[in-house]
């Protein structure tokens, strides 16, 4: 399964990446599992770890960690929003 992952705002600056294309192992089925998978890279990627205040979207819709990830999805991770 191949997906595109985007990072925004302070998370983008912390990680040093605005986007990447990833091929996921079959063991990763949900958004929460993807996030844990990325956090296991260690170092700055621990910003995605459990307990960190991070929101996520799949295909430009904000969703929770239980939602399934599918091939060619556009996934985004970002801090809580501060518009308006």
């Amino acid at each position: 399964m191949s997906i595109k992952v985007l990072y925004f705002a302070s998370l983008r600056e912390t990680l040093g990446y605005s986007h990447e294309t990833l091929t996921l192992p079959a063991s990763i089925a949900t958004l929460g599992e993807l996030r844990a998978h990325l956090a296991r890279r260690g170092g700055v990627w621990e910003a995605l770890g459990e307990g960190r205040n991070v929101r996520a979207a799949i295909n430009q819709e904000m969703v929770g960690p239980e939602v399934a990830v599918a091939d060619r999805d556009e996934i985004a991770f970002f801090p809580p929003v501060t518009g308006g």
Binding site: A9, M62, V81, G83
Partner: peptide
């Protein structure tokens, strides 16, 4: 908008 629109 303050909690759902992706602005930072």
């Amino acid at each position: 908008l303050k909690t759902r629109a992706p602005f930072w």
